[in-house]
Design a protein around this nucleic acid. Sequence first.
DNA 1: ATGACGCATCGAATGCGA
Length: 259
Amino acid sequence: MRITTWNVNSLTARLQHVLDWTKANPVDVLCLQELKLTDDKFPLDVLRHAGYQHCAVFGQKTYNGVAVLSRHPVREVVKNINGFADEHSRLLSVTVGAPQGPVRVVNGYFVNGQEPGSEKFAYKMKWLDGLRAHVRSELAANEKVVLLGDFNIAPEDRDSFDPDGLRETIHHTSEEREHFRGLVGLGMSDSFRMFEQPEKSFSWWDYRMLGYQKNRGLRIDHILVSDGVKALVKACTIDRTPRKWEKPSDHAPVTVELG
DNA sequence: ATGACGCATCGAATGCGA
């Protein structure tokens, strides 16, 4: 069973990439972020035809928007963070009826935050407070929990192409990293770091100034797993292939394989 | 400090991303 997270930066602009990628990589569950479309514009029929019979969608016009595409039934769909009023569509929690037993999948498009000290950064911190409480309750209620998505946090220096030059800038601040460790502290593991990985492994590269060609990137897309999932994890990989295609998303898909 | 690139918005210039 494979579960993938991919920030597509507009599903409308990236639909063909999603179809091409899933044809080559028919993962069981595909979690998307930054749909940038409303629910009524979601290409449900096309994705069903591609094998994703069970879709949960939480869209928004122009910005944000998340979805879970699944080959197995999904149930108990929850939009956004319980008890946290939010104008944005950023979090979608579903239970996937997997062959190995139910897996609670929490798909997030975390707040960017723009700049430390800004209002948007304060919103990011509040959102992360709410998320931690949300994940704590999911862990209390479910043995198998997967928290994945675009975290907009580079957890460690090795997750950035320029950790010294970018120290305490957005995605690199101590507060953001403390929040990442807080999520891990609830009893979750960064599946990517369970395995030996190439140096300078990133999941996002700036469109500008040949960011991808120079591998000036960040690892900000993550898959965290609860202890009940950890024992099943066989691999976690970033697929840079679609980043080389014409008109790519600036993010690459990240996939965890469960045995 | 600014812009660089891409996407969305009713039609051009701007906001936003990371």
